[in-house]
């Protein structure tokens, strides 16, 4: 097998076959919590991806120096450091997004996707593959957040790119009555449940395992 194939496999596994949200159901709290608007969902996805890539690379580079008995606390400290950095960056450059995401920004530190990848992949595999894995899983996570947020915003608000009225695009005419349910917490659960069903149908149709 050529070396390039391994990376390609890692990439498709992270995005499709083992999509963290649709297949493994990891890191569900931000998935449900910040997806009332597309921009928030996308912002959350990108922030988590940045932390994931950075922590994967650092943990993979340090894997020979971390004693296996205390590896989990070590991973957590590495992740927490990057989350602190991302929090400060968001606060400085994207204050609106930072406000909208609220407590979910520091909560990236307890996102099981990131710790899961550190434990299952980065602590065992070489640096370059860990980098690719971080990018792949990050894209998979962002993709899932984006799709759910798009569904919820279109049905729940009738807009795209809200909540800021300057950038929000009204999709439907004045007679449109938004389905308030999708903006509510209950709608998040139901929308994600139905979306999982749709994903299952697609996977079955194309015979993806």
């Amino acid at each position: 097998m050529k070396a390039g194939n391994v990376y390609l496999q890692d990439l498709s596994r992270g995005i499709i076959n083992e999509n963290p949200v649709f297949r493994l159901l990891l890191g569900m709290c931000p998935v449900l919590g910040v997806t009332a608007f597309f921009i928030n969902g996308l912002g959350m996805g990108i922030a988590a991806t940045a932390v994931l890539i950075a922590s994967n690379v650092v943990i993979s580079a340090l894997k020979n120096y971390i004693p296996s008995q205390v590896r989990i606390p070590c991973f957590i400290v590495v992740i927490a450091t990057f989350v602190t950095i991302i929090e400060m960056v968001l606060q400085a450059f994207q204050p609106d997004l930072y406000e909208a995401l609220g407590v979910f920004v520091p909560l990236i530190v307890v996102n099981c996707v990131i710790l899961g990848r550190a434990e299952a992949f980065a602590s065992k595999k070489p640096l370059l593959r860990s980098l690719v894995d971080g990018i792949a899983v990050g894209i998979g996570f962002t993709l899932a957040l984006g799709i759910l947020a798009l569904v919820r915003e279109v049905f729940g608000q009738g807009t795209i790119l809200g909540p800021d009225p300057d950038s929000a695009i009204q999709l439907f005419g004045a007679g449109f009555e938004p389905m308030g349910l999708f903006g509510q917490p209950a709608g998040a659960f139901i929308a994600l449940g139905l979306l999982l069903g749709v994903v299952n149908i697609i996977f079955k149709k194309f015979n993806i395992k």
């Binding site: 509510q184 209950a186 659960f189 139901i190 449940g193 139905l194 999982l196």
Partner: peptide, 19 residues
């Protein structure tokens, strides 16, 4: 239904509970 088995139906149930 076949495709909703497992986590999907659990999430929908949670949604109704949340409602």
């Amino acid at each position: 239904p076949d495709v909703l088995q497992g986590p999907a139906v659990t999430l929908i149930t949670a949604g109704i509970l949340s409602l």
